[in-house]
Design a protein around this nucleic acid. Sequence first.
RNA 1: GCGAAAGUGGCGGAAUUGGCAGACGCACCAGACUUAGGAUCUGGCGGGUAACCCCCGUGAGGGUUCGAGUCCCUCCUUUCGCACCA
Length: 856
Amino acid sequence: MPEEIQTTQMPNAEARPDRYDPRTIEEKWTAQWANDPELYASEPHSDKKKFYVLEMLPYPSGALHMGHVRNYSIGDALARFMWMSGYNVLHPMGWDSFGLPAENAAIKNQRQPKEWTLSNIAAMKKQMKRLGFAYDWSKEVTTCLPDYYRWNQWFFLKFYERGLAYKRKSKVNWCPECATVLANEQVVDSCCWRHETTRVEQRELEQWFFRITNYAEELLKDLDQLEGWPEKVKTMQRNWIGRSEGALVTFKLDGPAGPHGDSITVFTTRIDTIFGATSLQLAPEHPIATDLIAGNAELLASVEELMAQQRAAKEVGDIGAIEKHGVNTGAFAINPFNGEKVPIWIANYILMDYGTGAIMSVPAHDERDYEFAEKYGIEKRVVVLPRRVGEPPAAGQPETNVLPYSGTDSLLINSGEFTGLPVQEALVKMAKFAEEHGFGKATVTYRLKDWGISRQRYWGTPIPMLYCGKCGVVPVPEHQLPVLLPENVEITLAGGSPLTRAADWLNTTCPRCGGPATRDTDTMDTFVDSSWYFYRYTNPQLTTAPVDTKTIDYWFPIDQYIGGVEHAILHLIYSRFWTKVMRDLGLVHNSEPVTRLFTQGMVIKDGAKMSKSLGNLVSPDDMVARYGADATRMYTLFAAPPDRDMDWQDAGVEGVSRFLARVYRLIAQNPMANCGASNYSLGDLSPQGKKVARKLHQTIKRITDELNGRWHFNTCVAALMEFVNECYAAPELFASPKPGVEQTFVSDAQRKLVLLLQPFAPYLAHEMWTMLGEQGNLLRAPWPKYDPALAKEEVVEIVVQVNGKIRSKLTVSTDATDDEVKALALADEKVRAAIEGKEIVKIVVVPRKLVNIVVK
RNA sequence: GCGAAAGUGGCGGAAUUGGCAGACGCACCAGACUUAGGAUCUGGCGGGUAACCCCCGUGAGGGUUCGAGUCCCUCCUUUCGCACCA
């Protein structure tokens, strides 16, 4: 039916089938989906392939931003595609809802954190539903509710039983802005990860720690198995774990023992160079250093200065640029390998929190030691040959050059009984020698530190520990869980944990002796919440255990995790650690939580990441109101490949919206009943019909390949646009197909277009699905298959080059042989003009692509 | 300093294994339909050129190849990660 006739018949604009009105369509379906909780529900199903697709859960700040929309649009497209591909899909969502912003809001707006958080959740959930994301809300997890955080406490007790949770006094990173402790992972360039310009201070506090270092080796080793993870993330984790193989060697002091003992233990990765050690260097805070300078005011002052220099360098975040300074203590230690006395120095570039806080200095073979020795005139003694094993000495080069060659494939010299050994062998033998003689051993050091989880904050999981005057530290018995977070507590940022002021809650009885006891007033780092939430999704209402192992066995590991790269170390290393502990507790059987990880790019506007402070935010609500959820979502997929940063342009959404309107009109002008058969052949169609059919099947192939492969959804959308353009090139075909095969084809093409659209623009797809008279659930309709016979072109354009320059183009049958193509090319007028009078050296034929005639 | 990724029209981006550079979209220009158009449809749109043929063109320079955005080398720029870790 011609468009203009239809439009004049329509009583009101809203219902005009030539007018795409996303708002009416989307609100209708939002309501319908809300009434159908089974739609996205997924339960374990023994005879169905599962697919667990997960997007990182948001912090309920109050409103979604475009970064969220992009993240969830990627995951949703995948989930929808996998459903249509026949998988049993788990696609849950939840709320990482403990944390400081709720407390700030409480102070600022006089609202309770709980009320503030829950109302934010309600608002954001509504936004998500309006955007049409296909989440199974029956699996929703809200980490700030006792249903969830009681299991944090349960895990804490299990960790404690296993010695994986312990308390110690330690120097901690303190953010004055947050008024709480930060984990090492939360300190970025010496500043708070939340307050990027706030310098972190060092404070001494009693803290609970999780012994993640017990798993350092496994966390490192298992990275090799994570083939579906970006190399970049794995590299960041490897750097963070920072494994270093070496040896500990103990040097006895050449003098009386002080309060901190009579020896210095150094960590070295080059024990083979120990005969070249001409001094020891201690960190300014090293206990022995304290002993050695005690009572010497001059030394004390110098060391204070070294400490200040180190602190300053750390604050700038560039300890690497520190200018080396040191002081000679005048004391000596004995090198246990040769009995030599070596001077003990204190230096500003030695870090107390790495290794043992003490090194042996070998100026001849270490650049840093060289620099230091140059400055202070310390002897440089060569103990490794300046060349590889088997290499003859270079002519004119001294056999014992300082800093000659830093490789470990050389030979030792001047090293007592170890002289002549290759370095690699010496490393092993000398560590063994030290161990046999009781002054050292081979060891491995990590940069990774235990995870400090105590936070002096209110809005978090209470740590389930008690302090009894008689019994000391006592865990809350399991049956008393949860330790509920008390409500209506006065919240201030200063003055330690607000929980210290909740007297009723704070004072309790000791479960061991029945005497008075007080609760731990700290709460857990929120990264505890996000370390295992994805397990809880599988069975969020379970009251007897954190998870049901059988259910986990079905769903895990997560097939696809999608989120920002900013979580490469924090969240993603904690989650891996937690999984390994859960495995050791017998709760899960997988050792890694995530098979494939995808890190999407940021949303950029006007050259910078969208942020409130820059004022370049684009509100998803505004976009949805103006263009609809489908257009907004589809644009986030269209603007760039999902792993790259995308540049937001309002006009771009409009373009996508126009495309959706074109799709709508294409089908709405003449929605056809299901003709059943889809087995037409090209020969039955008109030339126009053939072109459309070919394009359709090529489009199916392109989109299917992308969804199964590299995920360049931008080209999927482009492919859909190309197909629709092809349809518009033959306007009568869709408007009034001829009875018979043509109608069958158009009916089929309409359906396939809707199916292909579903992952990217679900609202419009559902609307058109019913418009076509289909009753079944579109989300479970089978993904269309492409027919290679239909996708194949009959003729192909061949480029003819002469010496690599395009001279002509030929249209030949796809089945033409190389010789036929060659003959056609040589017969071509333009080609003949180009090669006239020249000798043909060679003719290259690339089937279905080109001919290159090489002449001279 | 070390390592990784990237650099293509006015803009976002395409070109999956070396084979027509610029798909698709935005912006812009012209036309059609219209009382009107910020709707819709049609066409154009890298640069040089009045235009055709043609020449040039994927950060710069070299190389391999019949043929290079794609592979190799050197350099430049941007982004990210690491950086006295002994």
